[in-house]
Amino acid sequence: MTTTSEYKKPIPRPTGESQPFWDFCKKHELRFQRCSKCNTFRHYPRPLCGECGSFDFDWVQVAPKGTVHSWVTAHRAFHPGFAEELPLAIVIVDVDEAPGIRIMANYNDGTKADEVAVGAPVKIVFDDVTEEFTLPKIARA
């Protein structure tokens, strides 16, 4: 497996709030914060529920399934780490079992940019990109 120093793309820089999200990804589990008081999901990870003001939450596991909300296709290497993959679709996905929550991802099943469509169902998969980090990615459902 690629060491973090060999990996050419940007890697996450977790905070105290977000570290558990990445730890779950490493175990290939998709979990999001859900408020213990009002049951509202939230992402990206943060301390406080903006709906009710509670600091209490659980990391709730959801099915790795989603739907394409929107996307953009990079035709230039805005970062050198992606130069080999152009044109690169960068996709925003509604997570089916976590209302209001989206993730960003790239396809890792060879789906081409011109095959992406709003509303398309996707599977959320886990890509162990380095020894340290596993990123959620997507594949056609």
Binding site: I11, Y44, H69, H79
Partner: peptide, 22 residues
């Protein structure tokens, strides 16, 4: 940076592309 640059979304035209697409 933590959740989006990692997928290549590193420039404003990429940030706003999904808004325009939507």
């Amino acid at each position: 940076g933590e959740f989006e640059y990692i997928y290549g979304l590193v420039a404003p035209m990429l940030w706003y592309g999904p808004m325009a697409r939507r």
